[in-house]
Write a protein that binds this DNA or RNA. Sequence first.
DNA 1: ACTTGCACCTCACGCACCGTGAGGAGCCAC
DNA 2: GTGGCTCCTCACGGTGCGTGAGGTGCAAGT
Lengths: 252, 252
Amino acid sequence: MDHPIGEVAAFAGVTVRALHHYEEIGLLRPSRRTPAGHRRYTDGDLARLQQIRFYQELGFRLDEVAALLDDPETDPTEHLRRQHALLLGRAARLEAMAAAVERTLEAHRMGVNLTPEERFEVFGERDPEQYATEADRRWGDGPAYREARRRTARYTKDDWRRITGEQRQVGARFAELLRSGAAATCREAMDLAEEHRRQVCRYFYDCDHTVHRGLADLYESDPRFTEGYGPAPELGRYVGAAIRANADRHEG
Amino acid sequence: MDHPIGEVAAFAGVTVRALHHYEEIGLLRPSRRTPAGHRRYTDGDLARLQQIRFYQELGFRLDEVAALLDDPETDPTEHLRRQHALLLGRAARLEAMAAAVERTLEAHRMGVNLTPEERFEVFGERDPEQYATEADRRWGDGPAYREARRRTARYTKDDWRRITGEQRQVGARFAELLRSGAAATCREAMDLAEEHRRQVCRYFYDCDHTVHRGLADLYESDPRFTEGYGPAPELGRYVGAAIRANADRHEG
DNA sequence: ACTTGCACCTCACGCACCGTGAGGAGCCAC
DNA sequence: GTGGCTCCTCACGGTGCGTGAGGTGCAAGT
């Protein structure tokens, strides 16, 4: 009912050394040892290893993986659902990159020279926030968060003024819409949500519609994010609803 | 007409430190320096950086990337085509992993316990065959052909994209090996051949080593099957030799 | 003329994730 | 008893940067 280390390594596509390492850092401890000291992995251990492999493939560091898996508030199916979403997101990103390569090829064929922005737009991506501490609590500090921090770290003061200015403008337009009595599900509100999403993409991380839904929760639950434009909690809910409607529209 | 390092870093989504590192290891040297010693990157440097980023995203190490880019026999468009194939392959792999997560979820819901093989099959590897129509001509409508047609008939457009992406990846890896000077009878080449065989099994029909030998002939005689990855006829012979060596190994 | 302030420079140490032996033991087959 | 395979435990090495520390170049403000 349990397996020796070589077999496990072969199954999982990792080396024996890696399994040793996982034990050293407390990430995966085999449930049993033989009298001779040989490691034996149970099916439960294998299930954990599977989770480890998925998270790792997604770019999490091993200490992050350990934190995720050892969080008592997360049940197994939640891990799987999260991994599913992240995997599809990454796949989509790679396809976008492939498309970018195609465009580059095309430009090359035409003898056109690309602008730097065009060259690297697909590398823009994934994930966190100026709400660094919020993002932290919500997503731990996954690869997306690190990427965002890396990017934001390079922004100058002028960049920040420009970026927050743009964001405040979107916020103001949301407040405007809300005051006008337009539904959060109307086209204008959804377009505004889409604009917001693209801003996040441009300045912070690769924010697809799924991730954007997560931000919607954030806006609704924390009035800090919309304060200053209007009736805070109500505007938060309004923006959240618009983001969700927009996501529905694009995913439908 | 050239750019300071911070700007380049922002464009490309890398840190300034990374660019310093690339220069240290001779991977990317800015074409110019200002009198004050500040690096200046030309558009040509940016083009190279773009290539670096793509290859890196695909999992190549920096010294490998340098070797690839500095190979005088490879022209720019060949890099792009190769990257395109590899990106699609990786995207396909991630989608397969997402599907595996779905299956795991489903099994979980049913209360079923997965076998280790099931748990990790997606981590093993990749790749198959599109030569359905060729198979057609060769085997007329024997049982193998009928099975292939039965299975391929159910594939959606998405399935096809995924499958051909995986295949192209194996092709690219063969080309890589050939370029590296490895013998077609080396272990890596045979492993790759075996991987290829399993793809055929998974996506088309039961392809044992004998049948695989038949495919080897096909690849050698028709350069269409390996074009786009490298010197077509040579690569075809190389793949054929690897398949035969692999068959020998398994049948021996 | 002076001082911020930012972008840039050059060391140089540190860290994550293992790879890669070295040296030895358990276990099976002949 | 002697290969031959798998397993064990150190322990050093390597890649791809992160992260200061300490200093320079230059433009704008006072």
